[in-house]
Amino acid sequence: MTDTPLNMVEADQTLVTRLRAWWSGETANPAKRVQFDRPLTPWLFLLPQLAVVVIFFYWPSLQAVTSSFYLEDPFGFGATFVGLENYTDALNSSEYLGTAAFTAFFCVVVTTLALSIGLLLAVKGDKVIRGAEGYKTLLISVYAIAPPVAGLIGMMFFDMHMGPLTELAAWFGYDLKVGINYWDTATALIVIAVWKQIPYNFIFFLSGLQSVPVSVREAALIDAQSGWRRFWDITLPLLAPTAFFLLVINITYTMFDTFPIIDVIVKDKPANNPMTLVYKVYLDGFKGNDIGGSSAQSVILMGVVALLTVLQFRFLERRVHYG
């Protein structure tokens, strides 16, 4: 993610030369000093990817926009144009707004916890020498676990009859009712989502730490006595590109990849259970057969995600030093 296409076009070019360059395929800073100059061959190489993108990305995205203006008959007998009604309905519904609020909360909490625990383990794992390989193996071993499997395992742990975590809570005098109590379910979702994501963050942070040159570490060791200072002044800034990359990945993860976890935990009984916006799109579209409303939600979500991505790159990436 370090090399955004944004800096491909030099900022100081005038608009006209920029447009001309754009048309001819030239850029001020092309990827290569020398490029092949054939009109047809690149299209042949691009064709398969383009075809897939057009058919399975642009067509459905466009479809989402168009059907968001229609109210579709639940039994498939035609559709009525309703303008922006689907959007106003969604944005005025307290249920939708509640889901949006939970999504934001969920996003912040899971990202913060998964990143900080991952970083903590990576810093410690990078530091120890005895048993380092063992720890690494253990911490990485659960990396490739699928979200639905994580959900399934989590469900067992929070099971109301035999779940070890339910028993643990009961031992403290708390009656944990995952699937029934809203915040109990939310807690379970967060724990599972964080648990699933830690190994991923751990791997990236660890490799980021290990790519800090030995000479820099030694210089820091000479310049700063306190380990905390060294971490704060040297290690963390050098880790910033990794951290930024992981931030983007973690936000995407909590918004989209947690779908299976939610689906497993709430088991199609979302009555009084927390869920994310993506899950609601699915629920309203497939279970509620409200195609127009679901499409409107999709479009809103697309806008939010696109905005978030742009914001991340515009404001956060600037503060990141790339070595």
């Binding site: 990305f57 989402a64 779908f259 699915y282």
Partner: peptide, 10 residues
């Protein structure tokens, strides 16, 4: 995930 419904239709 954000375009599951229209993707399904397509």
């Amino acid at each position: 995930e954000v375009r599951i419904m229209p993707s399904y239709q397509v």
